[in-house]
């Protein structure tokens, strides 16, 4: 009976685990993003491949190097850097200079995440932090949109993509308008089927609503996403834009356009639901979604910019600590919601 002579492990109960794992969740999100990424490659060709590769590469490399600097084991394997990189890449214009993409990748991990202590500690969504800073740093490049399904997309890339590091990209003659800017500045409405299928100009991965929803459905089915957030966003945007559209059709487009255009789908399904940056309670998630929805509509309709999803989510991120603080589950055997006084 040698087995019984051994020292036994002492560990607090429970002695079994569900098998939920951080890295499993993360890689599932990556998986859910694959159809969208695939469509991006189909729609924008080599340019999309390069942008996504540089985005993911720079994020992963930064994560690895920062772990090294801090003297900690690398956390690349948990997949969160890959998600950040992929999401960040999907929000970029397809013709963005690659050096800018790389700069943003470094910013995403260094400023968006490592600064606050790494995974789980960051108050803002790192991918959006990077995108917002890039938008502020290179406003022209970030609002220049290469056309979708261009003829030579599998043989050549936009010249702007290959600008020398830290040099201004050559102005792109073939740039087009996104559905949102076409509406805002030219009052031109894009057809709904185009929006659904993603055959419009826009960021690398934001155009195809159907595939984004597919990815979201996969995650919801696997219980790796809180469906209340996108649902609340969609409901709020639809309701608010329906009302505004009824009152002032010249200013606010109808709900179907507001829902399907721009980054709303990608943002609502994949960014607003980022576990780290969203509330933990169900009611909190609903409020989170409503806040984002309201901000999106307000910025799009009344603001200077055609698109506001990114800012809406970042602002909502800043509100999350308060939602988590104010909204607590009602504890069994007590009356009413919230904390004890």
């Amino acid at each position: 009976m040698t087995a019984l002579g051994k020292t036994l492990e002492i560990r607090s109960s429970p002695h079994i685990l569900s098998g939920n794992r951080v890295d499993t969740i993360m890689w599932n999100v990556v998986l859910a993003l694959l159809p969208v990424s695939g469509f991006a490659v189909y729609a924008f060709g080599i340019a999309a491949v390069l942008v996504l590769a540089v985005a993911v590469g720079s994020c992963v490399l930064t994560e690895h190097l920062l772990c090294r600097v801090a003297g900690k084991p690398t956390t690349v394997a948990d997949g969160s850097a890959v998600i950040t990189g992929l999401l960040y890449g999907l929000t970029l214009p397809p013709g963005l200079a690659l050096w800018m993409v790389a700069v943003g990748g470094v910013v995403a991990i260094a400023v968006g995440k490592a600064l606050f202590g790494g995974l789980g500690q960051n108050p803002f969504n790192p991918a959006l932090v990077a995108r917002a800073i890039l938008q502020a740093a290179f406003p022209v490049a970030m609002t220049t949109w290469a056309p979708i399904l261009a003829a030579g997309r599998f043989t050549s890339v936009p010249a702007s993509l290959l600008a020398w590091p830290f040099s201004a990209p050559a102005p792109d003659a073939t740039s087009t308008a996104t559905p949102l800017s076409a509406w805002k500045f030219d009052h031109r409405l894009t057809e709904t089927p185009d929006l659904l299928l993603g055959t419009t100009a826009g960021s690398v991965g934001e155009t195809c609503a159907v595939l984004i929803l597919l990815g979201g459905a996969w995650l919801i089915a696997r219980r790796m996403m809180n469906w209340r957030i996108p649902a609340a966003i969609f409901a709020t945007v639809a309701a608010l834009s329906a009302v505004l559209h009824a009152f002032d059709p010249a200013r606010c487009a109808g709900p179907e356009f507001m829902l399907l255009s721009g980054g709303l789908m990608l943002g609502a399904v994949f960014m607003a639901t980022d576990m780290v940056g969203s509330p933990m309670t169900h009611l909190g998630c609903v409020i989170h979604g409503v806040v984002i929805g309201v901000l999106v509509v307000v910025i799009r309709v009344y603001g200077g910019m055609p698109e506001g999803v990114m800012y809406a989510i970042l602002l909502a991120n800043a509100l999350v600590p308060h939602l988590d603080r104010l909204i607590q589950p009602r504890v069994y055997g007590t009356k009413g919601r919230g904390r004890k006084p």
Binding site: E9, R11, H15, I16, L17, R21, V22, I25, D78, G117, G118, L119, G120, Q121, N226, M275, V276, S278, M280, T281
Partner: peptide, 13 residues
């Protein structure tokens, strides 16, 4: 159970 690396809380809820 015991060999799993502890990650920071990702606030999954």
């Amino acid at each position: 159970v015991g060999g799993q690396r502890e990650h920071p809380c990702i606030r999954c809820g």
